[in-house]
C-alpha cells in the first residue's frame, strides 16, 4: 500500500483530505506543520505528500525546500494544496520542487485527477 502524508494546520482539511486519500488506497499520516512533517519524513519517507502553504512553525514552502535536500527527500511526490492560487505563487511552489498543485477549495474528484496526473493512482 502506498503512503501519503497530509500536512495542513487545519484539522478539518486533514480529516477531509485524509478520507479522500484513504479511499484512493493510501495509508495516511498527518502533520499540523512543516516541522512535524519533517520529523515524520525522517522516520519514513512517504510516497506522496499533500502540502499546505501557510502553516505556523514551518510553512509549506520552507518544508518543501528542506525536504528536497534531505536523504531520500527527492522521492516523495509533493502535491501542494493552497489558497494561494495566483500564477506567481503556483510558479514559486513548482520551482521549489512541487510535482503538482491543487487550488483550494478542492473535492474528491480534484484530488483523484491530480494524483492521476503525477502517476500516484
Amino acid at each position: 500500500m502506498k503512503s501519503c502524508l497530509i500536512v495542513d494546520d487545519s484539522r478539518v482539511v486533514r480529516k477531509v483530505a485524509g478520507r479522500i486519500i484513504h479511499d484512493l488506497q493510501f495509508e495516511v499520516r498527518e502533520a499540523g506543520d512543516g516541522a512535524e512533517a519533517m520529523a515524520l519524513c525522517r522516520e519514513k519517507m512517504p510516497d506522496a505528500i499533500l502540502l499546505d502553504w501557510n502553516m505556523p512553525v514551518m510553512n509549506g514552502l520552507d518544508f518543501l525546500r528542506a525536504l528536497r535536500r534531505e536523504d531520500g527527500g527527492s522521492k516523495p511526490i509533493v502535491v501542494f494544496c493552497s489558497t494561494e492560487n495566483d500564477a506567481e505563487h503556483i510558479g514559486e511552489a513548482m520551482r521549489s520542487g512541487a510535482n503538482e498543485f491543487i487550488m483550494k477549495p478542492f473535492d474528491a474528484d480534484i484530488i483523484h485527477s491530480k494524483f492521476a496526473e503525477v502517476g500516484l493512482v
Binding site: I90, M94, E100, I102, M103, F106, D107, D109, I110, K114
Partner: peptide, 9 residues
Amino acid sequence: FDVQKGLSI
C-alpha cells in the same frame, strides 16, 4: 473546479 480535473498544473 473544472480546470483542476484532467489538466495538470
